[in-house]
Nucleic acid binder design. Sequence first.
DNA 1: CTGTATTCCTATTTGTACAGTAGGATAACT
DNA 2: AGTTATCCTACTGTACAAATAGGAATACAG
Lengths: 130, 130
Amino acid sequence: MLLMLDLATYNTGEPVRLRDVAKRQQISEKYLEQIISLLNKAGFVRSIRGPQGGYMLKKPPEQYTVGMILRQTEGSLAPVVYDDANSNEREFVTARIWTQLEEAINNVVDHITLKDMLEWQEEQINQYII
Amino acid sequence: MLLMLDLATYNTGEPVRLRDVAKRQQISEKYLEQIISLLNKAGFVRSIRGPQGGYMLKKPPEQYTVGMILRQTEGSLAPVVYDDANSNEREFVTARIWTQLEEAINNVVDHITLKDMLEWQEEQINQYII
DNA sequence: CTGTATTCCTATTTGTACAGTAGGATAACT
DNA sequence: AGTTATCCTACTGTACAAATAGGAATACAG
């Protein structure tokens, strides 16, 4: 999440190195590698190898929702993965709760884009100035 | 959760033994002991020791929300516990997302009562008859 | 064409929270 | 007194995210 937000923040046309993201977000470079690998395979970012290489968002920030990103980097968004094989009588009622929760969660994360987050960052910076 | 639903289902005035809950819900009795201990300390159930003992809901099913129960049995409901100590600039934006998620989740679980779940159970049983 | 910077790949370790196990102490009914 | 149930506390297992580690592949710069 912070990784994608960082790429959006430095979305200048020049590729962004993981080393810089790691330094800014205080996350180990090795860990970022694994996360970005998923985002790369999902086609969310463009990677450029070698010196002056790095990563860039493929699309503008408003086209990435938090949901899209989390679904790639975490597995599912549901607090409990609903297992069809266990859909017996005993769990029918709890399954109904998980479904409602999943809908509520999706409704939040699918309506927040990277652009929204960039704007929140702006607001925060302005707070310090005033 | 299934434990409280079971107590609600067999809410006749007679105490319900954990052994019976364990058998019905296929959860180990020893595990149920630990869960009910939390619910007991929270004042949600009345316990009666000795032979013919067991547990009973203190209040009618419509006065227990899923949120109340989960907050006792699980720790917090938030997918990530928001740590004030880390509320620095870096996490300001993500904290805002967690807050929105928490609100959405609470909005779901605080509006489902044990009575609702009992009714869902009824619906399910009727399905099999028809 | 060589050296260096970066992504890429895969395996291993660690931390942690939830689920489950175990053994016995305490209380109350008959 | 003996049995039935709750009560208490400590330990074990397991699954998953977070983090670490070492090296292979690629591409630029001189």
